[in-house]
Design a protein around this nucleic acid. Structure first.
Lengths: 337, 337
DNA sequence: TTTCCAATTGGAAACGTTTTATATCGCATG
DNA sequence: CATGCGATATAAAACGTTTCCAATTGGAAA
């Protein structure tokens, strides 16, 4: 743990040039004679000089660091997203400061301010819902903010998502097309626009298009976890008119649903058919393997980060509200056609 | 996106004091008269002043930021660990710069240098194996480095782990005590000390203690993934003398093992018994629920970060090589006694 | 009053870069 | 041989804090 304190000035002295020249060499500025460059480079190697990014940040007003606000990194869904973000960030020489918000408004705002204090060059935000106060803070931000897997709720914020309404429609429709007249819908809290407006709307539209009525109690809300999916399905199974087809809002909930069904002695897909949402790695880690809506988390993260770099470089941006394609991956939780 | 550029100097002028005084107020230094403090605080609020952490970092040589090097954040195991780290970091007012190494030596070294360039106050490292070159770099680090879920391989590095040898012993022993004379061992690459030395040693010791011979081909190595666990078990099932008890090096592999067994038409736990390792959330997301060694990932992360803060604060440290307790969580992949 | 000491406050020098404006060098051109 | 210009290099001023040290203030004690 020696203290590494060789500065640009030491290098300059060692190489017999000014610090400005060293700075140019370090930053790959072309206005340096090759012989000088070599001389400086040698001095750098000899001294083991490593530029101080903090000083650089102060002087240049750029930190090549972006903030990432995520509800919970231990959630496989956000972990995948984060990986996509980090990979692209690395590609563009940025680092990531990661913070968990637990979807709490206060933590989100606090985190945002901490990140801004640290002078990040931009921020990627994930969260179930955009609280009004948060949006106010966003508006005051001196750096760009991009939403990932988070709807912008009509605010003028760049965002990367899939078409959740259509995805839910497709999933429900697929179930209906298998002859089901009732389709259960087990998902997360309705306050979150993705559920409350998008998925719910898609679900209802599919029912309507098929001429089927919407039954209030065919829908059960949980909190995205395996346990809540299990519990919701157990509850539903107690009813005589229990739907034999279930669309679950996340894969994790879908696993819970399948196990509840199996625990009750029924078979998937023979007695019940199930479709999930997200296509996390869980989808293939269950028997029967889960048919699910493919939401490309990694890609959403990657595209969000790429979008942020474009904004930071003032590149031309064709569309600030990106909608990535989705599809349904057919596996064994659905009967063959 | 207004440019927020009110500095400590602006606040000083507004409050009619010197910047030194503002600095004291901002940092909670007690040597400020209450009336002055209030005057300054008002000015801060009025101007919406937010201290520039980069400038602060330059002047104080502390960034309240720690680096976290992880093989792959999208791996549920490391995601949990990271969450533990971040929670404790937040508690102590630190932020986390997170980087994925994919366990590549080059990426690890590159990441380390980037982090040191950014002047992090400390680093938490996770990785399957400590490459010699990396350790060289560690030694040169001007800031402390703590290993999490990573053995220090005899180097003098603070680390937080469980006793992997004993855990593997316990798991194997439990299987043997159920009457099995052969126990399959399906785990990750042996180059990683945790597998190659610790778990392997525990497995063998349990066999020896029971007077059972070690069969080379009862051990199959994969890469920690579900798919590799599945594949390994499929291979094992083709043998006439296939062990009827399996100890899997990770839960994810254990799920693969169980599914391979079930796919072949056998039952767990009636025909085969399986014990996993880690107790990730996956363990309860399978039928039968997985009996597994509890490795407290979150805690390891939390303790590692706490250890780092102790080192940073020069607090008394009783033991730099922390070994957290483990236990086996009995679930349904094992028959009742 | 004076005197002194503790409590406050202020001034200014770091901290290690980038960047701008300025100088110098080398050499082709007239 | 002087001129001019592009290519390089230098000097010094930011950047926004913290922090050391000196200065000032306000009372309590003398």
């Amino acid at each position: 743990m020696n203290s590494n304190n060789v500065t640009i000035y030491d290098v300059a002295r060692e190489a017999g040039v000014s610090m400005a020249t060293v700075s140019r060499v370090v930053n790959g500025n072309p206005n340096v004679k090759p012989t000088t460059r070599k001389k400086v480079q040698d001095a750098i190697d000899r001294l083991g000089y490593r530029p101080n990014a903090v000083a650089r940040g102060l002087a240049s007003k750029k930190t090549t660091t972006v903030g990432v606000i995520v509800p919970d990194i231990s959630n496989i869904f956000f972990a995948d997203l984060a990986r996509g973000i980090e990979d692209v960030a690395t590609m563009y020489k940025y680092n990531i400061i990661l913070g968990n918000s637990d979807s709490s408004r206060d933590k989100e705002i606090h985190l945002l301010n901490t990140l801004l204090g640290k002078q990040v060059d931009g921020i990627i935000f994930m969260g179930g819902r955009l609280h009004e106060d948060l949006v106010e803070e966003f508006k005051k931000s001196p750096v760009p903010i991009v939403l990932a897997a988070t709807l912008n709720q009509g605010y003028d914020l760049p965002a990367v998502n899939i078409d959740y309404e259509q995805a839910a429609y497709d999933a429900t429709h697929m179930l209906i097309s298998h002859g089901h007249e009732r389709v259960g819908f087990i998902t997360g809290p309705l306050e979150q626009q993705i559920n409350g407006e998008k998925k719910f709307a898609g679900y209802r539209r599919a029912l309507e298009d098929a001429g089927l009525p919407f039954h209030e109690n065919d829908m059960i809300l949980g909190n995205y976890t395996y346990a809540s999916g299990l519990e919701a399905m157990q509850k539903m199974l107690q009813r005589d008119d229990c739907p034999k087809a279930i669309f679950a809002g996340t894969d994790e909930m879908a696993l819970g649903v399948i196990h509840a069904i199996q625990d009750a002695g029924y078979s998937v897909p023979n007695d019940f058919e199930v479709v999930g949402h997200d296509n996390t790695r869980l989808a293939t880690m269950i028997r029967p393997k889960l048919t699910t809506v493919v939401q490309p988390m990694y890609d959403i993260g990657a595209v969000a980060m790429r979008l942020l770099t474009k904004i930071l470089n003032a590149e031309e941006i064709e569309e600030k509200n990106v909608v990535l394609p989705h599809r349904i991956e057919r596996r064994d939780s659905l009967r063959q056609d």
